[in-house]
Design a protein around this nucleic acid. Sequence first.
DNA 1: GTCTATAACGAGATAGAC
DNA 2: GTCTATCTCGTTATAGAC
Lengths: 195, 195
Amino acid sequence: MVEVSTPLRDTATRMLDVAERLVQQRGFNAFSYADIAAELGVTKATLHYHFASKAALGSAVIDRYALRFFEALAAIDARGGSAEERLAGFVDVYANVLRDQRMCLCGMLAADQLTLPDSMKAPVLEFFDRTVAWVASVLERGVADGSLAPIGSVTEAAKTLVWSIEGAMLVARAYDDVPSFERAATQLIQALVRR
Amino acid sequence: MVEVSTPLRDTATRMLDVAERLVQQRGFNAFSYADIAAELGVTKATLHYHFASKAALGSAVIDRYALRFFEALAAIDARGGSAEERLAGFVDVYANVLRDQRMCLCGMLAADQLTLPDSMKAPVLEFFDRTVAWVASVLERGVADGSLAPIGSVTEAAKTLVWSIEGAMLVARAYDDVPSFERAATQLIQALVRR
DNA sequence: GTCTATAACGAGATAGAC
DNA sequence: GTCTATCTCGTTATAGAC
């Protein structure tokens, strides 16, 4: 029997929710335990019980974000569709984050890279490695069926697309201009389509 | 007669130098007056004499950075050359910043946008507006002589290029991988070349 | 123009009661 | 699991001597 009096999300989970949003909106160095505590209506000491240090909290935020992100990419694959449709789905994952006035978590952490706790540095790069690998797999499919014609190697083209989308997201968010992000992303994909 | 005993750069200028580098490397929220004071061998109080607040310092950093950046773009124009050559020169400006392990100042501040002092927010967006306008002028030239064939409008293509280069720079810096930045930028430009 | 000294506050983190 | 209370340190900023 499920305990019905259990809150929908426990404190640790709600803490991750708030921390994730604050990192995406403000960066790792521009939020504090006090910010989260105020929002959740608990004390800072409570938060330290769940995540002893800010570094531990940050690592947990990355882990959960990456888990969900790559689940979303797997869902795109599961849906099937052409390479071009999959790339559109990929862009839509980013657009949905941006609509929430958030930057990609790892794009934000890339900006903070030099000041991050050591334990957080590698996971950020792994996120990009895996993302580029997924996009490369989509480009492979498009090259195989003749629908896509990237300029350099598939891996280089994937890297260019992912890194570029991060930049479009970064600047579009500063303008609070989601449509411009979508136009830029569409242009980047069109550059890969055989014409 | 020039005063020869004058230091090569006065304190205010050296302060701007250090602050600029720290913003580009660490972000606006991850450096302090104490960091600059330690590096220059003066006290924090001395720094507050030159720039009363961190917001004033930040604004001065943006102003000087923008001045130099658009001088560099003007120099590219003065040199003449094809649209493609001018875009290569544009990318080289960014690559030289990246070689110093720095992010574009305004790209970094775009990440910090939500937490910036109000006085710094508009200048960051103006930097991007002006940069896109310059790139658009180069694309116009390329379209006019038939060497370039951007996918959408010239302005949209310029926006895509500038925002994408910011992202390539952001992620490449996290990897400390300048060659990958240059390959990505080359691909972005190639996508604009008539083939 | 630079200094010493300090104010006023917020950060991350811990001890120990409940 | 959450609280109160506290520690230590770093932050921006100012007053006033030199």
